[in-house]
Nucleic acid binder design. Structure first.
Length: 277
DNA sequence: CACACAACCTGTCAGC
DNA sequence: TGCTGACAGGTTGTGT
């Protein structure tokens, strides 16, 4: 489920419940996620209080008392869900269950196990190898038209793939890259350097799409997106993603699907013409 | 260096 | 009904 809007939605859900809660008990059913969950995690956080919930790129950072931050990533299929104790019915692929002092349970479920949960030292956590190479936040000031222009100038790869590179800008994944490009009328296969001059539009479109999606509680395709168990509804606002063969909302032309770097890209071949330079 | 691609793992769905 | 292949919102290591 997880591009920036979905992770931001989960973050807000956790934020309303976690701060101030103490860890009473942690159960780990499976350790073998993308990185193995350290054996000492359970001991390490027992009795500790959650202080805050932050998001960096598509990562969640659960800051705890005692200088520990739980770094989490949802991968392709991960979810954090908060449930009232007693109402909890175990699900397949529930890998971690953290029982809290406020009558809730925090459950990490992840069928494909591309997700991540690592206890790190809060001090200098941004310097951790998983975070240190990340580019600017797309909704922050550092992601400026000037910055993007400079970044695109040197890249010959297709603009859609380049926008998904987390070293250039974080949080834009397969759905929102297609959606943002449709709004700029740029063909997804255009060499990035050819549209460096249109960085202002691209920045604007990315911000617009991500903000709209956050307002909608993210997109829910196959799994629950929100910590409450509710579904987001931005999927109903997709203009091109997943709409192959359906009419373009602007011109009626059938939406196309191509594969770029192994991922599906959706676009309108009439609205988004591929032009040479 | 920049880019394409496979791999990681499980579930679902279309087609035979 | 059961099998097979394609595909799924991400990231990383390897090869060219």
């Amino acid at each position: 489920m997880p591009e920036l809007p979905e992770v931001e939605t989960v973050k807000r859900g956790l934020e309303s419940v976690l701060p101030g809660a103490l860890v009473e008990k942690t159960t780990v059913h499976r350790h073998d996620l993308r990185h193995p969950i350290p054996e000492n995690l359970v001991r390490q956080i027992k009795g500790s209080k959650f202080l805050s919930v932050k998001r960096r790129a598509k990562y969640l950072l659960l800051e705890m008392e005692g200088g520990i931050t739980l770094l989490s990533h949802l991968g392709m299929s991960g979810s954090w869900v908060i449930r009232k104790k007693g109402e909890y019915k175990p699900q397949t692929h529930d890998h971690i269950i953290i029982s809290l002092s406020n009558g809730r349970e925090l459950v990490f479920n992840d069928p494909r196990r591309f997700g991540l949960l690592l206890p790190l030292e809060t001090q200098g956590v941004e310097q951790h190898p998983l975070l240190s190479h990340l580019g600017p936040e797309p909704l922050g000031l550092a992601f400026s038209p000037e910055y993007l222009k400079e970044s695109l100038k040197a890249r010959s790869g297709p603009i859609k793939t380049v926008l998904m590179n987390q070293e250039l800008v974080v949080g834009v994944g397969n759905i929102y890259a297609s959606e943002a490009l449709f709004r700029t009328k740029i063909h997804p296969a255009t060499p990035a350097k050819h549209v460096a001059g249109r960085s202002k539009e691209i920045v604007g479109a990315i911000r617009l799409v991500l903000n709209d999606a956050i307002k909608s509680g993210g997109s829910t395709l196959r799994n629950y997106a929100q910590a409450s168990g509710d579904t987001g509804y931005f999927q109903h606002h997709f203009m091109v993603y997943g709409r192959e063969e359906e009419p373009c909302i602007m011109c009626g032309t059938a939406i196309s699907r191509i594969v770029q770097a192994g991922r599906s890209t959706y676009f309108c071949k009439s609205c988004q013409k591929l032009r040479k330079k």
